[in-house]
Design a protein around this nucleic acid. Structure first.
Length: 719
DNA sequence: GTAGGGTTAG
């Protein structure tokens, strides 16, 4: 058979420089008339050679010209045409490959596979599945290559039904478990769907399981909360003589970390070294994470030092590890170093550093990172978004939290929970309830975190009835498992509202009531002067935690506020005998990223004299406005004047005076922090102070935020 | 000629 093909062009096929050859080829019309006697083999060799050269030089244009020539010359032999598509794919152009592919009169299964796997490699699962469907429709039978790649597209898109149909076809064609590639792709797919039962069924049917299949199974179990089973699978794998590789190590170390199982973690560490996988980045990163999860952050830091050029994931893992271990400041230092090293953070990194800022309530630093989040276009996405909402919530800025929330492209359960929690801790109970009610419209089902946040919101705003109603609805629906935290919140809510009997009844409902519950009751008793129940509660607390100093202090304070000084003395001597250490009250302020700490009556600060002067002046002014020292909050048996004097030097007052001294800017908000609950006298005093200075004061205490403004507090005096 | 598993977040 002859083709419209120029015989002398064979010469060009051997030329090193492809482009000029192709330029001449483009004059195809005149050339085709030159010869008509070329053999099939010659044509095939000619085109193959040209395609090969175009592919090597990544000349897409060249491939296009070859295609045109092939069409015009009437030569479109299957294997060569496939090579043309393959050439486009190798040049990285999926769209060109698809164009050529679509124009082919006939397509071999290999080229279908190449197209499908390229789509998957480019994360275009929809196109891959579309092509798979077209292939089946066209009557081309998928083979083991097709299945081993296409299942990934189904799991990527969450198409369970379609995936099961494809799985069915693979069974019909006898390919399901005959080929370990297909088997492991299926295991991986079902694992990603979270259908571990199906994953295991497929795995059991595969005869010769290899390391990839085992790894897919391990990851599946680990990512769906069954780390114990993941560890079992790893053991089975080793017992069957299948050697773990860097992928397996990376996964199983995460499993050990999740289980906080240092014994197995160290064992695997040994295997990593023995297998010569120490240089593998992913397994080293997992090793770092494993040690951090087991609380050995110094080991994590040591592992990190071994990286010469840590990548983004490694940096992020380190930052996460530090935040998890309470080393927020170091996490921020490492983050800055990462930026200096020109590693671009992603939403994982940014949400972790934002979490660090939240824990430290570092508003300024957090805002700088917010700017960075915006720069990278991540401020409207759920992950960084939720972290920002938490940050602003924890810094007492609910308006900013809300504006981040409102700008989110997508609202998910976690972002709603974060927003409700922000409202809760800042005492905006009604806003929290409104958002909670609005979840139905957003088609979001509340989970245990939602309920805890909304109960906390009711608690912090004194919305007793609403809280009780939500609690009893959840309790009767059984949709959400109520934990001790939920009960503790309710005990606190009822207790603070004075419904002490109801609170005590609720505790009795809990199977094994823990410390937190009885402590909540005890503190409610203290609030309402209920000595008898308080003594009962303390007894329970001490059964559970014989060394609990805090509860002794609570009861002592209750005796003191009732004026039972003899019992106070008894309690104090008991506490001395038992060597209880009272957690001392402490307040602090952050001035120019330096933390200044104050204890009650603490005059050791270098600017103590000026702090004192500021305080004296403030006292004069607030008294003119009507402030009266409330000596009920002095828990020592002193005369009235001494009591008044001792109130002067409460840590929160010292911190505010210092903050005032240090910040001259009139419009800025003063932020202070206290490790215990803010004292009642100080609360009233701060309200007056905001009227004197005309500035807002935000105080974060152990339980919540108090936003003082124009003589009022956001908690409406209920806390 | 084409194929499967891994490390970081609320």
């Amino acid at each position: 058979m002859a083709f419209g093909f120029p015989r002398h062009f064979n010469l060009f096929a051997t030329l090193e420089i492809v482009t000029p050859t192709l330029n001449q080829l483009s004059h195809v019309k005149s050339l085709t008339s030159l010869a008509h006697n070329t053999s099939h083999t010659e044509a095939s060799n000619f085109y193959s050679s040209l395609i090969q050269q175009c592919t090597r030089t990544e000349s897409l244009r060249g491939l296009g010209i070859v295609q045109t020539h092939m069409i015009k010359s009437g030569y479109m032999q299957l294997s060569i045409a496939n090579r043309l598509v393959d050439g486009c794919l190798k040049c990285g152009s999926l769209s060109n490959a698809r164009k050529v592919f679509d124009e082919l009169p006939e397509r071999h299964v290999v080229i279908w596979n190449a197209m499908i796997s390229s789509y998957i490699g480019h994360k275009k699962s929809k196109e891959a599945i579309g092509l798979y469907g077209k292939m089946v429709f066209d009557g081309v039978l998928p083979d083991e290559y097709t299945f081993s790649s296409v299942f990934k597209a189904f799991s990527g898109l969450g198409l369970v039904y379609e995936a099961r149909r494809a799985h069915g076809l693979s069974v019909v064609l006898g390919l399901e478990v005959a080929n370990v590639f297909v088997g492991s792709a299926l295991v991986d797919m079902y694992a990603k769907f979270g259908r571990m039962g199906d994953a295991r069924l497929v795995s059991n049917r595969v005869g010769e399981k290899d390391v990839v299949l085992f790894t897919a199974l391990i990851v599946g179990y680990s990512q769906h909360g069954d780390d114990g089973e993941a560890l079992e699978v790893f053991g089975d794998m080793i017992n069957q003589g299948v050697k773990a590789n860097e992928y397996t190590f990376a996964s199983i170390l995460i499993t050990c970390g999740n289980l906080e199982d240092l014994t197995h973690g160290k064992l695997v560490h040994g295997l990593v070294v023995k297998s010569g996988c120490e240089a593998a980045v992913a397994s080293q990163t997992s090793l770092l994470t494993m040690y951090a999860r087991c609380g050995l952050i110094d080991d994590s830091l040591r592992i990190f030092k071994r990286f010469h050029h840590p990548n983004l994931v490694t940096w992020t893992s380190l930052i996460v590890a530090l935040v998890r271990n309470g080393r927020e400041e170091l996490a921020l230092i490492k983050f800055r170093k990462m930026i200096r090293d020109s590693v671009v953070p992603n939403s994982f990194t940014l949400s972790s550093v934002l979490q660090a800022c939240s824990s430290l309530a570092m508003m300024d630093e957090g805002q700088q990172i917010h700017a960075m989040v915006t720069k990278f276009g991540l401020d409207r996405h759920i992950f960084a978004g939720a972290a920002l909402i938490n940050l602003y919530g924890k810094c007492g800025n609910t308006e900013m939290a809300r504006s981040v929330f409102d700008a989110l492209i997508e609202i998910d359960l976690v972002s709603v929970n974060s927003m409700i929690y922000s409202y809760a801790q800042n005492g905006f109970g009604h806003e929290a309830l409104q958002l909670f009610d609005g979840m139905k419209d957003l088609r979001l089902e509340p989970n245990d975190v939602t309920i805890l946040s909304v109960l906390l919101a009711c608690n912090n705003s004194g919305l007793v009835q609403q809280g009780c109603q939500i609690f009893s609805t959840i309790r009767s629906n059984h949709n959400i498992e109520l934990t001790r935290d939920h009960y503790a919140c309710m005990v606190d809510l009822l207790g603070r509202a004075g419904r002490l009997e109801d609170a005590e009844m609720l505790i009795k409902e809990v199977k094994n009531p823990d410390l937190v519950l009885w402590r909540a009751l005890l503190s409610a008793c203290k609030l309402h002067g209920q000595v008898e129940m308080a003594e009962r509660a303390l007894k329970k607390v001490l059964e559970l935690a014989p060394g609990d100093g805090g509860s002794h202090v609570l009861l002592t304070n209750l005796y003191a506020s009732n004026g039972n000084w003899s019992q106070v003395i008894d309690m104090k001597s008991t506490m001395r005998e038992m060597k209880f250490q009272k957690n001392p009250a402490m307040s602090w302020v952050d001035v120019d990223r330096e933390v200044h700490t104050f204890m009650a009556g603490d005059l050791s600060h270098s600017r103590s004299r000026e702090i004192n002067e500021t305080l004296e002046k403030l006292f004069e002014e607030v008294q003119i406005l009507g402030y009266v020292p409330d000596t009920r909050f002095v828990l020592q048996d002193l005369d009235e004047e001494k009591k008044k004097r001792s109130l002067y030097y409460h840590s929160e007052k010292l911190a505010i005076a210092f903050a005032l001294l240090m910040s001259s800017k009139k419009n800025t908000i003063i932020r202070i922090f206290k490790n215990l609950k803010v004292c009642g006298d100080c609360h009233s005093w701060i309200k007056f102070v905001t009227r004197v200075i005309g500035r807002d004061i935000i105080a974060r205490d152990a339980k919540r935020f108090h936003h003082f403004k124009d003589g009022c507090c956001s908690c409406r005096d209920y806390w």
